[in-house]
């Protein structure tokens, strides 16, 4: 008993660390892909790390108050905790104690933290950014949650570990994507929107609202958000892999799947200009929701 608790604690410590490192490479891949698409060279290998170290190493830091600080702590901490709920090859963490729905809601903690921190900055650009981000969340979470329903219903469980185990037991034919292709497409759409990349990045709109939530974030505050971004990319892709691509049999296939999943939206992203908020809602509430409902209809049949 004590042993297993210790083991769990060890996993809970390791999992965010792995997530951070993988996430750094995901950020790199994203920027590299964007650069390639734009016929640029792109950043060097450790660029994401340089950015983060530099930001944390800033000499003067500006804070607008305690909640500003706590917001960043919550933003990072929430994702650190969320990673413990995402099973990876060899490590389950506390995935069995939380499950899919818990994960979905735990992922709102960092957003809430960020929103609080931005609010304390007293900058309208930030508040507008948050209002847009929350609106976008309302938009893409609806297809996302339908997808989660479909998957959970299909596998008869909200436990990610058993969902992954079921998929792996049957091989590729048992993967979510083969059994629920429509849901998988809808899920990918929702995943893309949730990343906040083009064309869904109205909430950071640099030229318009000065990168929205990040407007007053400098130094370690921005650094925290960079860390959060690594986790965000990691979480989104691993969740998708766990739901539809049979999770990770081993680290190699796992990472390949993760990066591949992430590459799709990134490749699409840089081809589009951004949507306005209302267009974003219209788009996301129309196609992915329709697809997801159709998928659920198939699943429940």
């Amino acid at each position: 008993m004590a042993n297993s608790i210790l083991l769990t604690i060890l996993e809970v410590i390791l999992m965010p660390l792995v997530a951070f490192i993988v996430g750094l490479f995901m950020v790199l891949m994203m920027r590299k892909l964007a650069a390639k698409l734009q016929r640029r060279v792109g950043p060097p290998l450790f660029q994401p790390l340089y950015d983060i170290v530099k930001l944390y190493g800033k000499q003067t830091q500006i804070s607008h108050g305690l909640i500003h600080d706590i917001g960043i702590i919550m933003a990072v901490g929430g994702y650190v905790a969320a990673e413990a709920l995402l099973p990876v090859p060899g490590m389950d963490g506390i995935a069995a104690k939380g499950g899919l729905v818990t994960l979905a809601y735990l992922m709102m903690v960092p957003s809430l933290g960020l929103a609080l921190g931005v609010g304390q900055c007293a900058n309208p650009n930030g508040s507008i950014g948050i209002s847009r981000a929350l609106t976008a969340m309302l938009a893409y979470d609806i297809p996302f949650i339908i997808v989660i329903f479909g998957v959970a219903y299909h596998f008869g469980s909200t436990n990610l570990v058993s969902i992954i185990a079921t998929q792996q037991a049957e091989g590729i034919a048992g993967w979510g994507i083969s059994e629920m292709p429509i849901l998988a497409i809808a899920g990918l759409f929702a995943l893309h929107a949730s990343l906040g990349k083009q064309p869904f990045e109205i909430y950071i709109a640099p030229a318009e609202i000065a990168t929205g939530p990040m407007v007053e974030m400098g130094g370690k505050f921005l650094g925290g958000l960079f860390v959060m971004q690594t986790f965000q990319l990691y979480t989104a892709s691993v969740l998708y892999v766990s739901l539809f691509l049979g999770g990770g049999e081993n680290w190699v296939t796992f990472l390949i799947k993760c990066f591949a999943v992430l590459a799709i939206p990134v490749l699409i992203a840089y081809l589009f200009p951004r949507y306005r908020t209302e267009d974003l809602i219209r788009l996301v509430w129309k196609w992915p929701v329709m697809l997801a409902l159709l998928g659920v209809a198939f699943v429940m049949n």
């Binding site: 920027r31 650069a35 734009q38 016929r39 640029r40 060279v41 792109g42 950043p43 060097p44 660029q47 340089y50 950015d51 530099k54 500006i62 640099p206 030229a207 000065a210 990168t211 990040m214 407007v215 007053e216 974030m217 400098g218 130094g219 921005l222």
Partner: peptide, 22 residues
């Protein structure tokens, strides 16, 4: 900044607000 000279390969990125910039 863009594809011809590509500052990003040097790790230089444009930012919008003074808080974020170096």
């Amino acid at each position: 900044m863009t594809s011809r000279f590509d500052m990003e390969r040097l790790g230089i990125q444009p930012m919008v607000t003074p808080r974020q910039a170096d």
